[in-house]
């Protein structure tokens, strides 16, 4: 632990503990740093090839700790990053050092930025405000579709302009294609049977129900299947945004219904 602490200190860090962001990350990264250390699936250390069993992996809100069953002394594995992913190991303690207080959360900072930005906008002349607002709306024109979609979902009963707070303007489209698309707006259907609401039209752009998909053999062209088409994500593939989703060591923070799939 002392060695690892020294390493962390040298890196300007007060701890070797990882943070909760790594909960859904790939646990098999390696990085050959200057001292040629590396680790793999939860603990291939230069102390020996100690493969930790996934079931022995403990995760908390602040630290991710892999406990090896061999050697007898438990190994605490933690990943830190300077320019890339590094893995450090330490012997002798089953408990990592306390996680440092997280710096201001990016999200909070983003909100602060948005508030400050909005305040500056309000302080400007009305004409200037109008131009800036128009620019913002153009920037997020696609996200508005997703906003309709999210509002149509009871699971995402959001208030206010959600799109203002995303750094990635299309992230809401992604959410709309995934979770937002799961629950249709029943009330809107009841209100206007036979007519598509705005949210339904928006959803139809980014998702489709399995039951609506045509069946039959794939068309062929030049002796091969014709892969041409407009392809929308399947709702049964989630979370697709993590390339490690199919790895056995991954334990994504999914709702219970998705864990059972």
């Amino acid at each position: 632990m002392e060695r690892a602490s020294l390493i962390a200190k040298d890196r300007g860090q007060s701890t070797i503990a990882t943070d909760a962001h790594n909960a859904g990350s790939i646990g098999m990264m390696k990085y050959d740093n200057r001292v040629r250390k590396r680790c793999a699936t939860w603990g291939e250390c230069n102390l020996g090839r100690f493969f930790c069993q996934p079931e022995l992996t403990k995760k908390t809100n602040s630290v991710t700790v892999a406990l090896c069953s061999s050697p007898p002394a438990p190994v605490v594995v933690a990943c830190s990053t300077a320019r890339a992913v590094e893995c450090r190991t330490a012997l002798g303690s089953t408990k990592p050092t306390a996680a440092p207080p997280r710096p201001s959360h990016p999200q909070l900072s983003l909100q602060t930025s948005v508030c400050m930005y909005a305040r500056r906008l309000a302080d400007r002349t009305e004409d200037s405000f109008q131009r800036s607002a128009a620019a913002v709306y153009r920037r997020y024109i696609l996200s508005i579709f997703a906003l309709f979609a999210i509002h149509s979902s009871s699971a995402h009963a959001l208030e206010g302009p959600t799109w203002l707070h995303t750094r990635n303007p299309l992230s809401f489209l992604q959410r709309a294609a995934g979770s937002g698309a799961q629950s249709e707006s029943q009330t809107e259907k009841q209100k206007s049977p036979g007519l598509k609401s705005d949210s339904e039209q928006a959803l139809s752009e980014f998702s489709r129900n399995e039951s609506d998909v045509p069946t039959g053999p794939a068309p062929r062209i030049d002796g091969h299947p014709d892969l041409s088409g407009y392809w929308v994500p399947s709702k049964q593939d989630r979370p697709v945004g993590n390339i490690g989703k199919d790895l056995p060591v991954i334990n994504c923070p999914l709702p219970q219904r998705d864990r059972q799939r």
Binding site: A122, P161, R167, S171, R238
Partner: peptide, 25 residues
């Protein structure tokens, strides 16, 4: 100019992103 690092927290659906809300002017 206002963007900060990272993909956002992992949501209950397993996807990352930002969906917290603050009021409009």
């Amino acid at each position: 100019p206002h963007l900060q690092p990272g993909p956002g927290p992992i949501g209950p659906d397993g996807q990352r992103g930002y969906d917290k809300v603050t009021p409009l002017p």
